[in-house]
Amino acid sequence: MRVPPKVTQAIAVALFGGATVLTLAVLVFVIVFVLGKGLPVVSLDFLLQSPREMGKAGGIFPTLVGTFLLPLVAVAIAFPLGVGTSVYLTEYTVESRMTGVIRFGTDCLAGIPSIIFGLFGYIFFVEILQMGWCILSGGLTLAIMVLPTIIRTSEEAIKAVPTSYREVSFSLGATRWETVLKVVLPTALPGIVTGVMLSIGRSIGETAAVIFTAGASLRLPDSLFDSVRTMAVHFYILAREGISIENAYGTAAILIIAVLLVNAVSYGLMNRFIARRTK
């Protein structure tokens, strides 16, 4: 018997609506659960004290420092490379076999799992270049990991700059580089910053690539050649080794807040960017 279209329509709505609600519920549950269990643990002492007994007691201050420094180093390296790449691809060359190869490389790099980045960073930076487990090794590894994100978002943002701006700049006697510096990049800036913020968010949450390259030292670093532990790594170790579930919750809560904050800012920027473009 043929089911009437009205009935299939109703079933479809119920099914798909149910799936959507379920998805949102699960994702919201994750956040609420972690914040609910974790926030009561968080206090000023928790944030500002060093951990004692491997993190069983005390706070998470050194891991806050690590979580701040590592993405910073990563972005400081990946930003010029990524933006430079996208400027080259959009402003300095026409689509050719070479740009195709560059794009292919970028896409492939984007798909590589973080454990491979970890392996590579370990063998290359830590061992072969003899940098050891340190902020710089970790930052370089993360920089490679987030490079595709920065390239892609910058390219989108630069492509969205009206051609007429470039023509005006050239017609006023600007060179290509002057045009890029004075007109193209400033106009594309919010989009580029969005990519940077997304990269920071990803670096903050990363574990596998970090643990093999930056190590897991709980001491405060003195230089870029010291090992650090990020919140994500700290959380992983606390939870996995069952050191302190309570402090794990607390760390996870701060971790989630940090990531959500960074992502929210980047989406806010993106929306403003889109709104300005369509105005």
Partner: peptide, 19 residues
């Protein structure tokens, strides 16, 4: 061409103020 364009100014069909 850069110094040429400084000698030869151009106004486009649609007004294009830079941002």
């Amino acid at each position: 061409v850069v110094s040429l364009r400084k000698r030869v100014g151009m106004v486009f069909a649609l007004p294009v103020p830079l941002p």
